[in-house]
């Protein structure tokens, strides 16, 4: 069976260039991409989201290439994935409930009643049911994050991409959220990709750890390897050391 997401020798000359990226994430597998600033994480996310179209190599989703998708093909792909980013981007003139229901309201064949049920269940799981009528301006950082997460998973995507999502949240609030995340991570056919500067947080969740530096993959391994590998890049990163193969400024 074709992997869920596959990068085959992908190079892209964006502001943060990447070169020769090759990896694959199977259905149900979870991966963490990490690295220092300017290591190509941004471009990698753009490529995964199909927002960056000028690249060489091939990116495949469920065995089908993303290269040269037409307008509707792109929309269909975006409907297969979910995405939470550090800025959250909640629609500020909509309530929590409307934000979570947005995509369902817009696309799905659900009836309004079903949409209300789905959003209510999600809000319940995320502990924000009491805030359903609140607009983003009335929410705390972690409530905003939970709403953004609810919006990203409302249509139950096969692939969820979470990019730098925990910045600015208190560790305790993050832990309380992790329980929610765990349920998705553990489901056998859903994959989550984390893009982060802090891979340690996802030790319990991720199957693959991939480290980028200057647009190239410098380390790739499973949980045990991530903890034990003597890869000099990884060692420098793990130890938060300024001395090492990476030039930190």
């Amino acid at each position: 069976m074709a992997p869920l997401l596959e990068f085959i020798n992908v190079s892209c000359a964006a502001a943060e260039p990447v070169e020769g990226l090759s990896f694959s994430i199977g259905a149900g597998e979870n991966a963490v991409f990490f690295g220092v600033e300017q290591s190509g994480l941004r471009t990698l996310t753009q490529l995964m989201l199909n927002l960056e179209e000028l690249y060489s190599g091939d990116i495949r989703y469920r065995g089908k290439t993303l290269q040269g998708l037409d307008y509707l093909g792109k929309l269909r792909y975006k409907n297969e994935i979910g995405y939470v980013h550090g800025d959250y981007g909640l629609i500020s003139n909509m309530t929590v409930e409307q934000n979570i229901a947005l995509r369902l309201d817009y696309y799905s064949e659900y009836s309004p009643g079903e949409i209300t049920r789905i959003t209510e269940r999600l809000m319940g799981e995320l502990n924000i049911l009491d805030k359903r009528k609140a607009r983003p301006v009335e929410l705390t950082a972690s409530q905003i994050f939970r709403t953004a997460y609810g919006r990203a998973v409302a249509h139950d995507p096969g692939l969820l991409i979470i990019e730098h999502a925990f910045t600015g949240l208190s560790p305790l609030n993050i832990s309380s959220f992790m329980d929610v995340l765990k349920r998705r991570v553990e489901s056998p056919d859903k994959s989550v990709v984390f893009v982060t500067y802090d891979p340690q947080k996802f030790l319990d969740f991720a199957d693959n750890f991939i480290m980028l530096y200057q647009g190239r993959v410098v380390f790739s391994g499973d949980r045990r390897e991530f903890r034990e590998s003597e890869n000099p890049y990884l060692v420098q990163y793990r130890n938060v050391a300024l001395e090492g193969p990476m030039d930190i400024r």
Binding site: L51, Y88, G89, R151
Partner: peptide, 24 residues
């Protein structure tokens, strides 16, 4: 409003949700 939405990445979020911001 559009400028603020652009800046606060609401438009990006829409786009990634598969909602064409032009249409929306």
């Amino acid at each position: 409003e559009t400028a603020t939405q652009q800046w606060s990445k609401e438009i990006l979020a829409l786009e990634i949700s598969g909602i064409d911001p032009r249409l929306f």
